[in-house]
């Protein structure tokens, strides 16, 4: 359900930008049939060993920022064990070390409060980061896998006036670049993320403003606008 909130934020931002004729996020008009797309174009790297999904994800993000570093160096820096286990805070340190996101931190889809509000805010931070052209390292599959969020697609529904979140672009180091995931599935796959604090500062206010007008494919969830 989080994703709906995030998507709402994104859609709303796009619309506001288009009307004010200032900044256009993504390509295309969300009111056009093809909708609007944010595709960061993060370079894709396959994981070099079966347990190197996190090093591969950091390698992708680093390359997006123009820093080419080996998965082995990253694995050594974040303390990847031969079996692949590493702590999320070490992943954040790796992101800060090798990418431009010097304020990256572990962000969890959980904690105190209404779960749907927590999820909405978590998702809102995802979308806001993408709009700021900053990748997100997504930890999925019960913390056993990771990859890079590379963008998403949304459109406005003329008949309802709602913003519809259509797809997430997830670059999976095992599967390939830009797997298109429906938001309903995505919100159940992701549990935590490494994200830039400065890239997401506007997420709560945008969620509060636009959340009620967002829906997402594959889920009946509606975003609750309260901030957490």
């Amino acid at each position: 359900m989080l994703k709906v909130g995030t998507l709402t934020v994104v859609c709303a931002t796009v619309l506001v930008a288009a009307k004010s004729c200032t900044v256009q996020f993504g390509s295309g008009d969300p009111s056009s049939p093809g909708g609007s797309t944010v595709l960061l174009g993060v370079p894709y790297f396959q994981q070099e060993t079966e347990m190197y999904c996190v090093p591969a994800a950091i390698q992708m993000w680093a390359a997006y920022n123009g820093n080419y570093v080996s998965q082995t160096d990253i694995a050594n820096y974040i303390g990847c064990t031969p079996n692949g286990g590493t702590l999320l805070e070490n992943v954040a340190k790796g992101v800060m070390r090798y990418t431009n996101a010097k304020d990256a931190y572990p962000d969890y889809d959980g904690g105190i409060g209404d779960p749907s509000v927590v999820q909405a805010n978590f998702t809102s931070r995802q979308v806001t980061s993408l709009l700021a052209r900053t990748p997100v390292l997504s930890v999925v599959n019960n913390g056993l896998h990771a990859g890079i969020l590379d963008g998403g697609v949304w459109h406005t529904d003329d008949s309802t006036g709602l913003y519809v979140w259509d797809l997430v672009y997830f670059s999976d180091p095992q599967v390939g670049p830009d797997t298109r995931v429906d938001p309903g599935t995505w919100m159940e796959e992701i549990q935590s993320q490494i994200i830039s604090r400065s890239a997401t500062v506007s997420a709560p206010s945008e969620l509060a403003t636009y959340g009620p007008n967002i829906v997402a494919r594959g889920t009946a969830f509606r975003f609750k606008p309260q901030q957490n």
């Binding site: 064990t81 079996n83 692949g84 286990g85 590493t86 702590l87 999320l88 992943v91 930890v139 019960n142 913390g143 056993l144 549990q191 935590s192």
Partner: peptide, 24 residues
């Protein structure tokens, strides 16, 4: 999930307890 695995923190010990030929 939630007890034996589910977050990188919980998973780390579990993964390190596996033999080389074992997987989750």
């Amino acid at each position: 999930v939630g007890k034996d695995l589910g977050t990188p923190e919980i998973n780390k010990a579990l993964l390190e307890s596996l033999a080389a030929n074992e997987r989750l």
